[in-house]
Design a binder for these strands. Structure first.
Length: 280
DNA sequence: ATTAATGTTCAGAA
DNA sequence: TTTCTGAACATTAA
C-alpha cells in the first residue's frame, strides 16, 4: 500500500534513470488482466508524449508525477499495489504500462506494475493538473505540515482523529499504516474527535508525523507479508521491522509493557493502538 | 470450495 | 454541508 514514504522511495529510485530521458515509446505490456484506467487512451498519449523529454520526477501526496518538456504531466497513482520499476518485475503478468526512454545514447525502460490493477495513469495538461491535483482536491503534503497547520486542518472536522488523518483534503500522503504508527508515537488516541485536540497535542502530532515519515523514507518504506511493495529495483523496504503497532494486535506494547496492542475498526479500516499509552 | 480481509480513491447516498 | 457506504480488483488465509 504505497503511502507517502513508499511513493517517495519510488520517485528517488527512478529519478536518475528517468530525468533528461527522451520518450521514444509508450506501450501496454502483454497482460491478460483487466486493463487499468489510463486516460486519455494510448493513441492520444503516444501522439502527445513521444519525442518529449522528462524534465522532472516528483511526488504529489501518494502519486508519482513526471513533468514533460511539452508542459504535459504524467500522474501515476499506485493505489493499493502499484509499483514504478526500472527492472525485475515481481511477475510479468501484472505489468501495466511501459515508457521507453533514450538517455545518453542508452535505452531505458520504466514500468508500472500493479497486481490488483486499481492503479491509474493520467496524462494531464498543466491546466488540468492544477484543477485535478490543486489545493481544492488535495490538502498540504504531510511533510509540509506545521503544528499551526495541523491545528487549522483538524478544526475542520469532528471525525475521529485517525479517520481525519486519512482524509487527503485535510492532509495529503498519510495512509492507514502510517496513521497508526504516527498516533502511537504521539501518544494520541485514534478515537479522539479531531477538533478537540489541544495545542500541545497538535504539536506532538506534528513532530511525530515528520519523525515517522522521514524514518520510513530512510528505510525505503514498508514491505508487508504479501510482499507487494518493492522499491524501483524490486527490493524489499525495511521499515516493516520498525513497526510498533501496525498488525501487532495482541502483542505487548513495546513502550509500556503493560497493555496489549489493540485492533479496532474505524471507517471500515483497521486501527492499531495501545490503550494504555494512547488513552481517550 | 467459499468467504473475509487487505487499503486507496471516488461516486453517490444518507 | 458533512459523513458514510460500496465498488473498483487480485490475492491470500481461514
Amino acid at each position: 500500500m504505497p503511502e507517502l514514504p513508499e511513493v517517495e522511495t519510488m520517485v528517488r529510485g527512478i529519478r536518475d534513470c528517468v530525468v533528461g530521458g527522451k520518450i521514444t515509446a509508450v506501450t501496454l505490456p502483454k497482460c491478460s488482466r483487466k486493463p487499468i484506467s489510463i486516460i486519455p487512451d494510448l493513441k492520444n498519449i503516444q501522439k502527445r508524449v513521444i519525442g518529449t523529454t522528462i524534465d522532472s520526477v516528483d511526488r504529489r501526496a501518494k502519486r508519482v508525477k513526471l513533468t514533460l518538456s511539452s508542459g504535459d504531466l504524467f500522474v501515476i497513482e499506485p493505489r493499493m499495489t502499484g509499483l514504478m520499476l526500472l527492472a525485475d518485475a515481481p511477475t510479468q503478468d501484472h505489468l501495466r504500462f511501459q515508457w521507453t526512454l533514450a538517455l545518453k545514447n542508452e535505452s531505458h525502460d520504466l514500468w508500472f506494475w500493479d497486481r490488483r490493477g486499481l492503479g491509474t495513469i493520467r496524462l494531464y495538461s498543466a491546466k488540468e493538473y492544477a484543477e485535478q491535483l490543486g489545493p481544492k482536491r488535495l490538502g498540504p503534503d504531510a511533510l509540509e505540515m506545521t503544528s499551526k497547520l495541523w491545528i487549522t486542518q483538524l478544526q475542520k472536522t469532528s471525525r475521529p482523529l485517525k479517520v481525519a488523518m486519512l482524509d487527503q483534503k485535510l492532509v495529503a500522503g498519510i495512509g492507514n499504516l502510517y496513521a497508526s504508527e504516527i498516533l502511537y508515537r504521539a501518544k494520541l488516541s485514534p478515537q479522539k474527535p479531531a477538533n478537540q485536540l489541544s495545542t500541545a497535542e497538535c504539536i506532538r502530532l506534528s513532530k511525530s508525523t515528520l519523525f515517522i515519515l522521514k524514518k520510513a523514507i530512510q528505510y525505503e518504506g514498508s514491505t508487508l507479508s504479501d510482499g507487494t511493495y518493492r522499491n524501483a529495483l524490486n527490493r524489499d523496504g525495511s521499515y516493516q521491522n520498525e513497526h510498533r503497532v501496525y498488525m501487532k494486535q495482541e502483542t505487548l506494547c513495546s513502550r509500556c509493557r503493560s497493555s496489549e496492542i489493540q485492533r479496532i475498526v474505524q471507517a471500515q479500516r483497521s486501527t492499531f493502538f495501545c490503550p494504555n499509552c494512547q488513552p481517550e
